[in-house]
Amino acid sequence: MNSILKIVAQRLALGIFTLFVISLVIFLGVEALPGDLAEAVLGRSALPETVAAFRRELRLDLPMHIRYIEWLTAFVQGDLGNSLANGREISELIGVRLANTLFLALFAASIAVPVAVGLGILAALYRETWFDKSISMVTLSTISVPEFFIGYIMIAFLAVQTNIFPSISNITWEMPFFDRLYASALPAITLTFVVMAHMMRMTRAAIVNLLMSPYIEMATLKGLPRWRVILMHAFPNALSPIINVIIINLAFLVVGVVVVEVVFVYPGLGQLLVDSVSSRDLPVVQASCLIFAATYVLLNLTADILSIVTNPRMLHPK
């Protein structure tokens, strides 16, 4: 058990280090801006007062490492600074939007995960059949299609032509739960399509790989019924790769949300990020990038640790 704790601790340390480096990269990214930051962002014709306010806001008068430490400490405490565009507090700006984004991601995941894993397992069990082949054709096409194309097709057919769903997802937290689900149905379905193909392909590959292993042949030759071979011999060993696939794809999903939110004008963090990049509202960009990256890193870290603790070689050392 000791070695397993050690490895998990190592991974956690590496994860925290990665987060630290990301924060550094995000911070330095802005620093690296050639020339004077204020002028570059605000343009040469900016009023001197605006430039001064900007400098104060970014604390450009202080040395870099002190600014970094202050920025990071404030960030960890939940103080994300103020937006350049409208001067509002970023934490307030981001809070609701982050919740909206997580709501959408969870909604999509709750459809995508069971369907994708189920279909992936079926495709692996019935590989080389018409079922497998048609699934593989469909996934190949979905992987090849840009997210916004799926989104607009949804809008064109499910919103404009037939009026089943609203084309713009205007959601607020005052809405009843099911209304919110209804309003965000189209982005959720789009997002589902986006990650499902990958998840299905990866699940299938993991299971096929597993079914080729000699101990599965051995189990078959022991005369065990097929359901038992799959349930008792394949499944326990498949668990760790499948968990891995799911979490990695959840990480994809969190990022994929950005484009989908823009298509459906969904009031989430992704939309905010894109708007802020366009308007070069750097503090907001920094904050939302850090949140996205941290979610992504933490999800991948979880996948890593789960696959360690579900490995029998790790659980029962010599």
């Binding site: 990665t18 990301i22 990480a251 990038c289 996205f292 992504y296 991948n300």
Partner: peptide
Amino acid sequence: DIMMSIPILIFALMILSV
């Protein structure tokens, strides 16, 4: 490893904004 642990879209948006 560290570069890849940052999602590419976020990274790109970050740099393009600068």
